[in-house]
Every structure is written in C-alpha cells, then in structure tokens.
C-alpha cells in the first residue's frame, strides 16, 4: 500500500496535470526534519518535495488570503483544524468552497519542538512519527518511544476534531479524537485561579510581548488588511511596547477571535516569547460555546455569533439583560 506521502504526491500531480487546480499548497522539509515550510507547487515536478510529518505545523489556509476567483482553483493540504478554518472563512464570505480543492489529512497531532528539545538533542533527530499514544523518535542511535502526552503540542492534546470536516479527498483513515469530551486541564487550571493570581499570570505574559505581530500575521482568521493594533489613523493603541498596551492588544485580539478561532495553535506556536495565546483563545471559545452553542468552523453556513444580529434573539425578545 502506498504511504500517505506517496499518495499525496500522486494526488497533487494528477490535480496539476489535469488542470483541475492551478497550484498546490502543501509542506516541504527544510534543513532539519523539524523545519517544515509551506510549499507551493505549480508543476508536477514540484510535487516531489511534498511531505507529511508531525512538524507540518503551519495552517496553510492562511496562505489562501487574497485568492481571487480568476486565480483558479488551489489545492490545499488540511488537517482537522485547518479544515475548520476553511469553513470559518467561507461562513465569513472570505472564500468560496469552489475556490479550493481540499486534501484532507486525518491528524494524530503535531510534535512540539520545544518539548522535543527538552528530551532529545535536536541536532540528532532524523525522523519523528506519531503512533497513537506514542511518539517515536529516530536518531542515529535507534528509535525511542515517548508518551504522546509529553511531546505533542498543547492544542493537539485537547483537539476534538482531528479529522477534516470538509474535504474533497481524504488521505488515509480517520483517527480517534484525543479529547472527545473537550477537557482542557490547563485551561481549567487557569480558570481555577483567583482573579489576582490570574491577573498576575497574564500580566507577566503580556509584559513579555515584543509586538512583532507574528501571532496576527500567522492566523488564518486575522485577515484584516491592517490589524487594529497597527493602525495609524485613527490610532486605537499606542505602538509603544508596555504591559498595558500589550494587554489591550491581546485582549482586543481575543475578542475579535471569539467564536472564530479554530484552535490550530498557530499564534501560540509562533510567539517568540511564549505568550499563552492558546489559553486566551480557548477560553473565549468556551464562553461562546456555552452562551451560543457555537463552535467555529463546524459549519460553513453559520456565521460567528458575535458578527450576527437577530431580532428574535432570546435575550432581546424577552428583554433580558445578559449578565452572568
């Protein structure tokens, strides 16, 4: 049986050769196995560089930004979270389903390079595979298994939707979600803190932000041409870097992503100073789920609750004040 990577390359070659798509967006390996970059193939030959590894971290849906109908169809490799981003963008009229050919990859989870570096010498790593409850790391000395719990990215450990919910083709078989019940121990730990402790935790994190905007620029849902935090006229937020300004920036971003973030972990992963951005967005997602029974990216027909107005809304119709 051909492996997933061969299957991927064949599929992409066929799509380009038949002219069904103009371009394929996938992943290719860089100098080290854990340096995987987005790969943009426009010819069948370029498809030979495509790979699928547990380091295929980028949410490639982000690279569809600015795609115009006349650009033709583009094929994109999507994991569970990435496919949700496609749905979310369609629901917000940023993309149409016809513009993309989705190559779905059931995802066993991504390996967190920082966690890996704590356990093995990165320079020695030759290959890493996720096999259910284990992550197998191969070095020159042989293979070593680790519990998946220790090496996977936090967002993958709490993932409820590892199988692409929308796709034109699936590579391989569906996998069992790691977290079908939606438990998030880290989030619960933060929720259980006293307000003072929580403030201290987040203020310390905000104080580290250098305002590089990598979080914004990596996010598939942050598609504003100019982020409010970078806008000049009017200037909503000073460009100076300080705990207060950084806090306003991050809380503003969390609000803008409430009910929209698909928890791909992109912002959290790319932040050079480890702000717990995943937790902020997971908290907002939880609030929206409880208040509006909405989970971003499950349904391409459903716009995010904070972007809709319904005069029949229960709170409005009954004259309720929404206070809790």
């Amino acid at each position: 049986m051909p492996n997933q990577t061969d299957q991927l390359r064949e599929t992409c070659k066929r799509l380009l050769e038949s002219g069904e798509v103009k371009k394929v967006i996938g992943y290719r390996e860089g100098r080290a196995p854990y340096h995987v970059s987005p790969h943009f193939a426009e010819t069948p030959e370029e498809c030979d560089a495509l790979v699928l590894t547990p380091f295929c971290t980028q949410n490639l849906v982000r690279y569809l930004r600015g795609l115009k109908p006349e650009d033709g169809k583009v094929a994109v490799v999507v994991k569970g979270c990435d496919a949700r981003a496609v749905n979310a963008l369609i629901a917000e009229h940023q993309l149409t389903r016809e513009q993309v050919y989705l190559i779905g990859v059931p995802c066993q989870g991504l390996v967190d390079v920082d966690k890996l570096a704590k356990r093995v010498n990165l320079a020695q790593v030759q290959e890493v595979r996720v096999e259910g409850a284990q992550v197998v790391v191969r070095t020159a000395e042989g293979e070593q298994p680790f519990p998946a719990q220790d090496l996977l990215e936090d967002c993958c450990l709490v993932c409820e939707y590892p199988n692409p919910l929308v796709h034109d083709q699936m590579l391989g078989f569906e996998v069992a979600p790691r977290n079908p019940e939606g438990v998030d121990a880290e989030l619960e730990r933060i929720e259980a803190m006293s307000p003072e402790e929580r403030q201290e935790y987040f203020r310390r994190a905000f104080s580290r932000c250098i305002r590089c905007y990598a979080c914004v620029r990596t996010c598939p849902l942050c598609y504003c041409t100019t982020c409010f935090a970078q806008q000049n006229k009017p200037q909503w937020l000073p460009r100076s870097v300080g705990t207060d300004e950084n806090e306003m920036f991050q809380l503003g971003r969390a609000m803008h992503l409430a009910g929209r973030c698909v928890q791909c972990g992109g912002c959290d992963r790319v932040c050079p100073v480890n702000l717990p951005l995943r937790l902020l967005n997971a908290k907002m997602a939880r609030e929206i789920r409880e208040a509006f029974a909405h989970v971003s990216g499950l349904d391409a027909e459903k716009p995010p609750p904070l972007a809709t107005f319904d005069s029949q809304d229960r709170d409005i119709a009954e004259g309720n004040n929404y206070d809790r």
């Binding site: 980028q58 305002r211 590089c212 905007y213 990598a214 914004v216 620029r217 990596t218 790319v270 050079p272």
Partner: peptide, 10 residues
C-alpha cells in the same frame, strides 16, 4: 511562505 510579521528582524 513569508507572512509579513516582525520576527526575523525583531
């Protein structure tokens, strides 16, 4: 693959 952030230069 560049997303136009400030990481490389910062």
């Amino acid at each position: 693959a560049c997303v136009g952030c400030g990481v490389c230069t910062f």
